[in-house]
Design a protein around this nucleic acid. Sequence first.
DNA 1: GACTGGCACTCGTTGCTGTGGAGTGCCAGG
DNA 2: CCTGGCACTCCACAGCAACGAGTGCCAGTC
Lengths: 341, 341
Amino acid sequence: MSLDERKLDVLRAIVEDYIATQEPVGSKSLVERHQLRVSSATVRNDMAVLEDEGYIHQPHTSAGRVPTDKGYRLFVDRLSRVKPLSPAERRAIQRLLSGAVDLDDIVHRTVRLLAQLTRQVAVVQYPSLARSTVRHLELVTLAPGRLMLVMITNTGRVEQRLVDMPGPLGEDDVLDLRAKINEKLAGHRLSESPLLIPTLVDDMPLALRPAMATLSSVLLETLIERQEERLSLAGTANLARGTALDFPGSFRGVLEALEEEVVLLKLIGEVESPTTLRIRIGDENEFEGLRTTSVVSTGYGPGSVVVGGLGVLGPTRMDYPGTIAAVRAVARYVGELLAQN
Amino acid sequence: MSLDERKLDVLRAIVEDYIATQEPVGSKSLVERHQLRVSSATVRNDMAVLEDEGYIHQPHTSAGRVPTDKGYRLFVDRLSRVKPLSPAERRAIQRLLSGAVDLDDIVHRTVRLLAQLTRQVAVVQYPSLARSTVRHLELVTLAPGRLMLVMITNTGRVEQRLVDMPGPLGEDDVLDLRAKINEKLAGHRLSESPLLIPTLVDDMPLALRPAMATLSSVLLETLIERQEERLSLAGTANLARGTALDFPGSFRGVLEALEEEVVLLKLIGEVESPTTLRIRIGDENEFEGLRTTSVVSTGYGPGSVVVGGLGVLGPTRMDYPGTIAAVRAVARYVGELLAQN
DNA sequence: GACTGGCACTCGTTGCTGTGGAGTGCCAGG
DNA sequence: CCTGGCACTCCACAGCAACGAGTGCCAGTC
C-alpha cells in the first residue's frame, strides 16, 4: 500500500514540527503552521492511515502524534529537504581545522567542531592502522638487547613498542635490520603486512635470523593483530538537554554505551566509501543501550580512500537534515586536510 | 565554640545514614539505627546546635537533616573511620593491573578499575612530561630535510614531532646530531631541559649549527612549552544513578566540566607528594559546574616521585571512607608498577 | 545542668476529585 | 473525496483532605 503525496506531506510536517517543539503534534496546529490546503479533519484521516501503517504513534488517546522510528526512516529516505550549511558555518569549519598542528590535534578539533555544529555527541575514529600504509619503521636501541620499534604511517600516526631481543646487537646489526624491514614494508598497507612479514627472515644472514624472527613476531602480534583502534568523543553534555523526554529511563544506558569503545567503533568504523552516509535510527541500532538514539556516520580519508569514520549520536528526534549536512561537510574537510599532508 | 563528643557522634551518624539512604535523616530513626544512648529529644537538641553551626541543614521545616558541605568536611577530617579494602578488592587490583602491557594499557586499566571500585567517575592523568626524565631521543629521516623527532621517557611515554630542516642532511650528520642531543639531555628531567637545550648548539661543527638550532627550537616549543597533559576518563555513566537528587539542575554542568580537560587537570594534577590525598567538597571546588560534586585525588609515581595524578569525582554525598581507601590503594599499586619498569 | 516524655505544630507527600482543553473518530452533507 | 460539526476521551492541573514524619519547646525528673 502506497501513501499518496499529501499523506507524505503530512508525515513530513509532523516530523518537522515534532523535532522543533518536542511535543506531540495535533491536526489543528498542523494545518495552521504548514500550508496544507485542506482542513484539519482531512489531516486527521490521513494521520489515522499513517498510524495504521506504523509511521506515527499516539502516546495516548486524545493526544497528538509522534513519529515512530519507521516514520523517521521514511522521512530521512524520501522526505527531508537538504539543508545546506550556512557560509558562516563553512568558514568556521575551515578556519578551525586549518589551525591543526598534528594528527591528535586534527582529531581533537574535528570532534569538538562536530559536537558544536550539531549540538549532539560527536565521535571521530583515529585514522585506522589497518587502512594506513607504512611510511617508515625505526629501531632505537635503548639498552643492549632492548629495542624500541617505532612505526610511522602515512596518516601521521605513530605507534611504538618495546622489544626484548634474544641477544645483544651491534649498531650495524640494528641498521641492517632496519633497512631490511623498511625495504619490505614501507609503502605497503598494514592490512597486507601479515603476508609480507613472514618473508622478512628469509634472506637474512644467519646471525641475524633470531633477531629478525623476534621482530617479526612482535610486528605481527602487536602492530597488526592487536589493531587497537582509538577514537575521540565530545559533546556528551549535549545529551543532558532534553534528558527525561528523550531517553525514557535509559539515559544511563546511553552513557554506558558511549564508554564502550568497541560499540562506538562498530557504529562509526564500518564504512566503505567516504561518500556514503549511514544512518541508524532507534531500533535499527544493534546495541541495546542505543535503541533510543540515532546515529549518523560516514567515512573520511584523503581522496577516495577511507581511513576512518566519524559521526554523530543523538536522540531519535534530532534534526536529520542539519546533522547530515554537518557530518558530510566535516568529513570532506578532514579528508582534504589529510590529503594535503 | 566547640562541639562535645556526642554532637560529633550525631553528625557522624547523620552523614553515614544520609550517604546510605540518600534521604534526610530524622532524630527518631537515628537513635534506632545507631547506639546513641540518649533519647530522640536529646538528639533533636544536638541537631539544632549542629544546624546553627552550619554543619547540617533542613530542606524544609518538618523534614529531616542533610549534611552541608561544611558537615562533610568535618566528617572527612575528623569523624570518618578508615574502611580498608577487602582482600578480594586488593587481589582484583593486583590482578588487573599486573596484566598491563604498555603505558596506554596501564592508564586505561587503572581508570576503569577506579571507576568500578568506587562506582564514581574516575580520572587518571598520564605520567606528566614535565616530571619525567628523558630516556632516549631518536631522529628518523623521512625525506631529505625532513626528520621525525621521537622522545622516549622513563615512564614509557613516547612523543614525536615532524621537523622540517633548513637543508638536506647526510646519514652521518643525523647520527652526530642524535648523539649530541642524547649526551646532553638523556637522564635529565624535562623540566630542567629549558636550561640545557640552548647549550646544545654550542660546540657543534659550524656546518651543523643551523640544523641543531632548528631542532633546539622545536624541542623547546613543542615538547617542553606545549606541555600537553593527557588524561583518561571512565565511569561517566555512574553519574546517572541518582541524577535528579544529586545534581540539582546542573547535571549538564557536570558533564560539561568533565569535557574540559583543563579543569580536570587542575583537579587531578596539582599534587605534591604521592602520600598526600586531596579532597575537595562541593563549594570548595573552584569550578562552577562542580560545586555539587566532591573530588578525591592523589599523586602517583614510582617511589616517592610524583609523575601524575589520579582521582575520583562524585556527588558530595559519596562514601568518603571507601573512596579514599580505593584511591590510595590504586595509586600505590600503579606507583609500584611504574617502578618495576 | 543535662536528659527525657509529651504535645502542639509544620509541611511535604499521597490520593482523590473535578474541570478545562486539546485532540480524536466518525458521520452526514456538499 | 473533502469538510463542518459533534460527541467522546483522557491528560494536565488545581484544589482539598488525610496522613505522617519530623520538629521545637516545655515541664518534669535525676
